[in-house]
């Protein structure tokens, strides 16, 4: 239980630093990259909390978060390259 007390501020400070880069980022790619890494590390944080809360339903949200963050990357990359997305 004491390990959680060390881990939670470690991950929260990493989130805040990612948010600072997402806000400060000069180009769009920096902001999207920072939010991408933020959501990957948030998926890890959710998995750690799933153990902390001792329940099995909470882990599935980590997979969904990681996959949808990846898709956010692709949409913006597709728009930057060819100025049109989808249909």
């Amino acid at each position: 239980m004491y390990s959680m007390m060390v881990l939670i501020p470690l991950y929260l400070s990493a989130f805040i630093i990612y948010v600072v880069r997402a806000i400060k980022g000069p180009t769009i790619a920096d902001a999207v990259l920072a939010i991408d890494c933020l959501s990957y590390d948030l998926a890890v944080f959710l998995a750690i909390l799933a153990i902390y809360f001792k329940s099995a339903f909470l882990v599935s949200s980590a997979i969904i978060l990681a996959l949808w963050a990846y898709l956010l990357d692709l949409y913006i990359a597709k728009h930057l390259v060819s100025k049109e997305v989808g249909a």
């Binding site: 997402a22 769009i28 902001a31 939010i35 933020l38 956010l72 913006i76």
Partner: peptide, 8 residues
Amino acid sequence: AYSAGQGV
């Protein structure tokens, strides 16, 4: 991108 971050 910021609205996606807000969703996260």
